[in-house]
């Protein structure tokens, strides 16, 4: 293995130590986080709906995906009643998961591995619904990393909108390999 030789080459060739910069303090936008977050999610191709209570989750999902018959709701059903659906995850039409935190500047929502239920689930489901507590919105990515430990669990992910690609002539197509739509329910 070349570990030693690589490290030695680096030691030989690196410059004198350069101090790390002072921690970054960002300039915060004065738009309120809910409005900014909504705009960002929509720009990323997602939809935001504000709920007055968590009891409305199932109805909102039903309203947005009236045709869906395979719905794996891991928020509304706190018990693991939908675990059986994971055996054929690729056929799940709608998955409902809880987000840990939302970022106003870009619409990204963070999920720990435990929030994903299964690592592949937020990606393989055809449509994704993320429930997020309004109080969990922060301004920007600096705040996000200051608020939660994104590397606390084995996996974690920021999700901003549905999967997308513009690899064919820069035409934006929503629904590449991951979820074809994203609905954010702000509770």
């Amino acid at each position: 293995m070349s570990r030693q030789s690589i490290l030695e080459a680096i030691r030989k060739n690196k410059p004198e130590t350069i101090a790390a910069p002072a921690p970054y303090s960002s300039v915060k936008s004065d738009t309120d986080t809910i409005t900014a977050f909504r705009t960002s999610v929509e720009r990323a191709g997602g939809t935001v709906q504000q709920l007055s209570s968590r009891n409305e989750i199932a109805a909102a999902v039903q309203q947005h995906y009236p045709q869906a018959s395979i719905v794996a709701d891991f928020v509304h059903h706190p018990s693991n009643s939908h675990q059986n659906l994971l055996h054929d995850a690729a056929s799940i039409e709608v998955t409902v998961l809880e987000g840990q935190l939302g970022v106003a500047e870009n619409g990204a929502i963070f999920l720990h591995e435990s929030d994903c239920v299964n690592r592949a689930l937020p990606f393989i489901t055809h449509n994704l619904v993320l429930v997020l507590d309004k109080s969990k919105l922060v301004h920007d990515m600096h705040d996000a990393y200051a608020t939660i430990d994104t590397m606390k669990e084995g996996f974690g992910v920021f999700i901003a909108g549905p999967s997308k690609t513009a690899d064919i002539e820069q035409s934006l197509v929503i629904g590449a390999h991951g979820a074809k739509s994203l609905l954010v329910l702000l509770a």
């Binding site: 990323a44 590397m151 084995g154 992910v157 920021f158 999700i159 549905p162």
Partner: peptide, 17 residues
Amino acid sequence: ATGQAITTYSSHFVKPA
């Protein structure tokens, strides 16, 4: 890169599943 605020997925891999 593309003029997006962030990529759709920013995945943090820490431990094997």
